[in-house]
């Protein structure tokens, strides 16, 4: 099959968006991280709610995970 008949493969996310995504996702991720740790240090062993901890931590890690991926891509470390 000739190459001219094939479809070009593009990145799933336009590389132009990498800086924006990195900044937005990491900012939100850090906010959730802050909220997670504030809750951790203000709650006591009696008042702690594991569901709330896992939810905040989970959201924060998803945001930070994708944010740091786009940060790597933005800086030129194409993983």
């Amino acid at each position: 099959m000739a190459l001219s008949e094939m479809q070009r493969v593009h990145s799933p996310v336009d590389p132009v968006l990498y800086p924006l995504l990195a900044v937005v996702l990491i900012t939100l991720g850090l906010l959730f991280t802050a909220s997670f740790f504030i809750y951790e240090v203000t709650s006591s062993k009696f008042s702690r709610n594991i569901v709330r901890e896992l939810a905040t931590g989970g959201v924060a890690s998803v945001l930070l995970g994708f944010g740091s991926l786009f940060l790597l891509l933005w800086t030129g470390v194409y993983v």
């Binding site: 991720g29 931590g57 989970g58 924060a60 890690s61 998803v62 930070l64 995970g65 994708f66 740091s68 991926l69």
Partner: peptide, 8 residues
């Protein structure tokens, strides 16, 4: 997902 797992 590897990064997410690391932060989690």
């Amino acid at each position: 997902l590897l990064l997410v797992a690391f932060f989690l």
